[in-house]
Design a binder for these strands. Structure first.
Length: 503
DNA sequence: TCGTTCGGACGTTCAATTGT
DNA sequence: CAATTGAACGTCCGAACGAC
């Protein structure tokens, strides 16, 4: 639907959907990559503060924005945990915002009643579902506060060819931001042999094709799973439901999950042999973790859980776990409840698909410009493609803080600039074009001059036809007008006539 | 100041068109 | 046949204006 279009796009390459924490972040501490972006929720004990994938939108519009190619880390929400923890299930955060110049994104959607009463419709005033409505009560119009009747839609109107819908797989030669990733592109493979409830691999199909295609062997070992629709139920329930998408296991890129030097391992957390979570943390439910609607998947990266497959005689387990035929990378510590590590944005130096680089990143050089323990920025290292990120999912925090998170999620995205629009009457109204072939000629159909009567090139014929096909509501309104006119000694000519101002 | 008028932005509906 | 598109149709915001 067109009215839902605001949810379709994101802006900058590194832009990922707003998260509660993000939207709640209003500080001006945005800067180069690796800056610690404060967020409103306290980190759990033993964890460094999470940082954001990219600088939050500046509170100050004049604040400089970091260069597009900056090695800002992505932040990727970790849906399963989010889902598991968030009270009432997962609440998808606000979808990615368009560029800051995108107008009206933050404008609250106007609600309107299904059918305004005749009085409100005539006055172009807000109505409600009560009868008499509030406005009619206010003006003591109880008896005339009745629903109108919708005009029947015209049929048999020939339309031109429709515009082709932009597909996900289209090449990126358009101006739309690269890889606005979507849940539909998520691929997942499960590793039944490693941990029945833990996913072993995340991958995305966006971005330049990696050498992921030859993952067929893994697929045979672990048949392509399907991603359940990105609903909270799917993840919460643990058992992933069969779903529409076929998953293609993809190999781990070497070094994809490099933990940056100095990156702390949370106390109590030990890597794997099946996910030893810190006390109190839940096991990820199920083996499939669909992205919730509106979430963006970082492009061109691989997002497995770095769980090493247990040794196997024939290696099938490893293949299944790794989803590929390449060597598995060493397991890296990460913070399961908070997030995991992804690669740099496409186009960034060292990012997958960037010229002169490969998906692989050296173990030592990865993770440029990130935070270390206690939020201390690490030394800036050349971007090598791997940047880590966290996701501070709300369930991590006490209920009071979770409430903040929920509240923040409901807030309009920061940076969405509401363009002041001039509304209402214009001094001199020029005919408004309406799609090129027709125009609104502001002939009164409903009583005061804006009935949206369309005039084609042969305008008058169209108008007469409009007159003939007017619906009951207009006839009703006109009948009322005619009644008044008769009482005043006038005919109903005007009411039946051109529909011009009858007030 | 308050009520009315009304241009036009915006939301909803649904037939036409397209994709599978 | 389902999904998508996009125009018809409707609601109502808010500036302009008049009456008191």
């Amino acid at each position: 639907m067109a009215s839902e279009s605001p949810t379709k796009t994101a802006s900058a390459p590194a832009v990922v959907p707003s998260t509660p924490a993000e939207t709640a972040t209003t500080t001006s501490e945005q800067g180069a990559a690796g800056a610690v972006y404060p967020y409103p929720f306290p980190p759990p004990p033993g964890y460094p503060p999470p940082f954001f994938s990219y600088p939050p939108p500046p509170a100050d519009p004049d604040a400089p924005t970091p260069p597009a190619g900056a090695a800002t880390p992505y932040m990727f929400p970790y849906p399963p945990f989010y889902t598991a923890f968030a009270p009432g299930g997962f609440q998808a955060p606000a979808p990615p915002q368009q560029t800051p110049s995108s107008p009206g994104d933050s404008r609250r959607k106007r609600s309107q009643v299904k059918m305004a009463c005749t009085n409100c419709a005539l006055a172009c005033k807000r109505c409600d579902d009560q009868r008499p409505c509030g406005r009619c009560q206010k003006y003591s119009l109880h008896d005339t506060c009745i629903d109108g009747q919708r005009k029947e839609r015209k049929k048999g109107i020939k339309r031109g060819p429709y515009k082709r819908r932009a597909r996900d797989g289209d090449d990126g030669d358009n101006e739309s931001p690269p890889p606005v990733f979507s849940s539909s592109s998520t691929t997942v493979a499960t590793n039944p042999s490693t941990n029945g409830s833990a996913p072993t691999e995340w991958a995305v199909a966006h971005g330049p094709p990696t050498s992921a295609a030859p993952a067929a062997p893994a697929a045979s070992a672990a048949p392509p799973a399907t991603v359940a629709a990105p609903t909270a139920q799917a993840a919460v329930g643990g058992a992933a439901q069969p779903a529409p998408q076929t998953l293609t296991p993809q190999p781990f890129p070497p070094g994809a999950f490099t933990l940056p030097p100095g990156f702390p391992i949370p106390p109590g957390f030990q890597m794997p042999q099946g996910f030893q979570l810190p006390p109190g943390f839940p096991m990820p439910p199920g083996g499939i973790f669909p992205l919730p609607p509106g979430f963006a998947m970082p492009p061109g990266g691989m997002f497995p859980f770095p769980i090493p497959a247990p040794p196997s005689e024939n290696g099938t387990a490893a293949a299944a776990a790794g989803g590929g035929n390449g060597p598995r990378p060493p397991a890296h510590a990460f913070y399961p409840p908070m997030g995991f590590f992804v690669s740099a944005p496409p186009g960034a130096p060292g990012a997958p698909g960037a010229s002169g680089t490969s998906t692989a990143a050296s173990e030592e050089g990865a993770g440029a410009g990130v935070v270390g323990a206690q939020g201390q920025p690490l030394a800036q290292a050349p971007v090598s493609g791997m940047v880590p990120y966290f996701y501070p999912y709300p369930g991590f925090y006490p209920p009071a803080v979770q409430a903040q998170v929920q509240q923040a999620a409901a807030m309009p995205a920061i940076g969405a600039v509401e363009k002041p629009k001039r509304r209402g009457r214009k001094p001199a109204a020029a005919p408004t074009t309406n799609g090129g072939t027709s125009r609104i000629i502001a002939v009164s159909v409903n009583g005061h001059g804006h009935g949206h009567v369309v005039q084609n090139d042969d305008g008058e014929d169209e108008l007469e036809e409009e007159e003939e096909t007017r619906g009951g509501r207009q006839l009703e309104l006109e009948a009322r007008a005619a009644t008044v006119a008769e009482e005043e000694g006038m005919g109903d000519e005007d009411a039946e006539g051109d529909g011009e101002e009858d007030t």
